[in-house]
Amino acid sequence: MRVVVVGGGSWGTAFSRVLANREHEVTLACRDAEQAGTIAATGRNPRYLTHTDLSGVNATAIEEAPFASAELIVLALPSAVYANVVPELPGTAPVLSLTKGLDPATGERLSTLVQGRPVAILSGPNIAEEVSRDLPAAAVIASDDRQLALRLQEAINSVTFRVYVNEDVVGVELCAAAKNVIALAAGGADGLGLGDNAKAALVARGLAE
């Protein structure tokens, strides 16, 4: 599968490796042409997850990425720039969004900003640094288009990255955003030295909410 991953940060870097490990034809599209040039020349991202081997990944600036021939576009962007980038995407390839959160300006779910093409959401307890080291992880793909979700599951599944399918797009997106709030609160509990009981209670009540 020909895939363009938009976003040269930690998650875009790690997920490019996941796809390359499955022998897909991957292009990592970066906002910074100099960063893309370094990745292309060295097989390493000079800014994020610098240990990660990207030798099987093409890299280019976003404006030069092969969107027209892509069979899938993966979005690994900060939520703050999502609304600016999505309308400018050329071609008609389906979108797989890795971005957690809501649109900061409107509070809308990010998948609703993708118009005129199929869209799926990937989310899970995925720390990019661990995924980039091929440590075991799992995620869920949600889409209104079940066949798209199943095709993506088959394309991404591996021994170390297990993908499940879910049709609840709203639930997956909102839970992905909410769990980051809970994670921040859990970190605050650690920082305040409140103990494991308090942190466990915080997580449990967060899940209930």
Rank of each mutant, 00 (worst) to 15 (best):
2 R>K: 15
2 R>H: 10
3 V>H: 01
7 G>K: 09
11 W>P: 03
12 G>Q: 08
12 G>P: 13
13 T>A: 07
16 S>Q: 04
17 R>T: 03
18 V>C: 06
22 R>H: 13
22 R>W: 07
24 H>W: 10
28 L>H: 08
29 A>E: 09
30 C>H: 13
32 D>C: 06
32 D>R: 14
34 E>Q: 11
36 A>S: 09
37 G>L: 13
38 T>M: 11
39 I>W: 01
42 T>H: 08
43 G>R: 12
43 G>D: 04
44 R>K: 07
45 N>F: 08
47 R>Y: 10
48 Y>T: 14
48 Y>M: 11
49 L>D: 02
49 L>G: 03
50 T>V: 15
59 A>S: 07
60 T>S: 05
63 E>T: 06
63 E>D: 15
63 E>H: 07
63 E>Y: 01
64 E>D: 12
66 P>M: 05
67 F>H: 00
67 F>Y: 06
70 A>S: 04
71 E>Y: 02
71 E>R: 02
75 L>M: 05
75 L>C: 01
75 L>I: 00
76 A>V: 07
76 A>Y: 00
77 L>V: 01
79 S>Q: 05
81 V>I: 05
84 N>H: 15
85 V>N: 05
85 V>L: 04
87 P>L: 04
88 E>P: 02
93 A>H: 14
97 S>I: 12
97 S>H: 12
98 L>R: 12
101 G>N: 15
102 L>Q: 11
102 L>D: 12
103 D>G: 13
104 P>H: 11
104 P>V: 13
106 T>N: 10
106 T>E: 10
108 E>M: 11
110 L>W: 09
111 S>C: 14
111 S>T: 15
112 T>C: 10
113 L>T: 11
118 P>L: 05
119 V>S: 07
121 I>N: 03
122 L>A: 12
122 L>S: 09
127 I>D: 01
128 A>D: 01
129 E>L: 09
130 E>Y: 05
138 A>K: 02
139 A>K: 05
140 V>A: 15
143 S>Q: 05
143 S>D: 01
145 D>H: 13
146 R>Q: 07
146 R>V: 10
149 A>T: 07
150 L>R: 10
151 R>E: 13
154 E>D: 12
154 E>Q: 14
157 N>H: 11
158 S>I: 01
161 F>W: 03
162 R>M: 02
163 V>P: 06
164 Y>N: 02
167 E>K: 03
168 D>Q: 08
181 V>R: 11
183 A>S: 13
185 A>Y: 10
187 G>C: 08
188 G>D: 06
188 G>W: 04
189 A>I: 14
190 D>K: 09
190 D>R: 10
190 D>P: 03
191 G>V: 05
191 G>K: 00
192 L>T: 01
193 G>I: 14
193 G>M: 10
194 L>N: 07
196 D>Y: 04
197 N>F: 07
203 V>H: 00
205 R>K: 12
206 G>R: 10
207 L>D: 08
209 E>N: 00
209 E>Q: 04
